[in-house]
Amino acid sequence: MTDFLQLALYLFAAINPAAVAAAPPPPHRALLRSTVALGAAAGFALIAIAAACSGTILDALGVEPETFRVGAGVVLLVSGALTVWQGGAAHRGPWDGRGGAIFPLALPVIASPAALAAAISYGADDGAGRVAAAAAVVVAVAGLLLILRAGRYQAACDGVARVTGAALVAVAAGLIVDGVRAI
């Protein structure tokens, strides 16, 4: 597996497109394409900015990238465990109008704590460009699922979201171990 594909899979687990698709509440209204596009772009921008500013953020915190891996791993672990528990749950919020594209779609559904923590950690380790490229692919998948109203298939979305959450727990464990084992 290439490093880029691996990074994309980690971000897939962190962003969890199936959970994003399930976020608009029943009866699974079709969001306007423009709303989805704006929300996905804003969510991606937040993730890309987090990756691009990872060095500055870590310097400001006075924390080494290796140590941040452990902290990010804890965030991913909690997020993954919550997703396994809750599944693809609907997110309450003002989904109507353009405002819904920013909140809750971009933040916190796409740019979730897990996605942002992963972006900072992987941005510091692998470079912001690679993280942004991988995130773009994953966010595009999430946007496509929203446009296709994949949330209608509630059981399927729920199942895939939980499996992805379990994968995120595994990614988190790896990140924590990696942070502890690093120099």
Partner: peptide
């Protein structure tokens, strides 16, 4: 929307402070 964003960011801030005080103390 503003209330929702503020609530979300506040909840995140609490988590960030807990992490900062435990695992992410500055070197």
């Amino acid at each position: 929307m503003r209330r929702g964003v503020l609530f979300t960011l506040s909840a995140w801030m609490v988590g960030a402070v807990v992490l900062r005080a435990t695992l992410l103390m500055p070197h």
